[in-house]
Design a protein around this nucleic acid. Structure first.
Lengths: 138, 138
DNA sequence: ACAACAATGCAACACTGTTGCAAAATTTAT
DNA sequence: ATAAATTTTGCAACAGTGTTGCATTGTTGT
């Protein structure tokens, strides 16, 4: 497990530090997406708030995680699957937010259908956020 | 114009106040979605920040405006078209964010195709956020 | 015009996110 | 293995965002 984490960091030319290993492991453990606050709670006082912010920023820049659009004002992050991190990043994402438990799932294998836009609009990225009841709450 | 605003407020059983009329007119004037900060800048020091927050909250509760999910952490609001405010609110929204000018458009007439979800997931609401270049920037 | 009610402004607060800089840890080269 | 170079971290300070309680003001219905 620790192997995989170190490999991921090395692959992205990042120094191997305690905070990065721990934060990355939180993402691997979580079945859903995480907000900054979630990581802060999971980590306790182990790391500074700023470190978490900077680590998340770094991970996003390296394409290891991505942000998820939400209807409320919370910013959530989810691990990118291999297709993302391999540079061959696809620009379509489907996410599912459970109204009951609040968990956010990253549905990588669901395909976003292209929609017809008005004249002059050029689509580059499609983010579909589906809300409802997840498989654990139904 | 003022007629229409007063009617809208009356229809939703809200008191007719200066702040509500002004904020509502900002939405009618704007071709795109507005963030709280936009309204604050447009209004200057005319109203208190808190009043704007509470007014937006009220409008959302009454179904006059709706929030738009964004990839960054900004919360934006857009006017609901007649279908929304008439109570017969449809739960699918398509929004377009221009990477160039940042304007957010509410594309009410674009239909969101239903996607196939994994077993046990029940979709209630679909929010599609398309990013790219808008008709003014292309 | 008046009473009942609703909305506003103010102050205070908690949370979120960013920046600069010195100290500590990691990596690279010797 | 050790030292230099680089990167990352923690701290402090700050700006922005959003919420709540309460007294004051404005709006509504009679």
């Amino acid at each position: 497990m620790n192997e995989r984490i170190v490999d991921l960091l090395k692959k992205n030319h990042l120094s191997i530090t305690e905070s990065r290993k721990k934060i990355l492991s939180h993402f691997l453990d979580a079945n859903g997406a995480l907000a900054h606050a979630d990581i802060e709670h999971k980590s306790g006082t182990e790391f500074d708030r700023v470190t978490i912010y900077r680590t998340l920023q770094t991970f996003v820049e390296k394409g290891m995680i991505h942000t998820i659009p939400t209807t409320d004002n919370s910013v959530r992050y989810a691990l990118c699957k291999d297709e993302c991190s391999a540079g061959h990043h696809h620009d379509d994402h489907v996410h599912f937010m459970c109204d009951e438990c609040g968990t956010t799932y990253c549905l990588d294998h669901v395909i976003v259908p292209q929609v017809a836009l008005p004249e002059g609009f050029k689509a580059i990225r499609n983010d579909l956020v589906v809300s409802g009841i997840c498989n654990k709450c139904s």
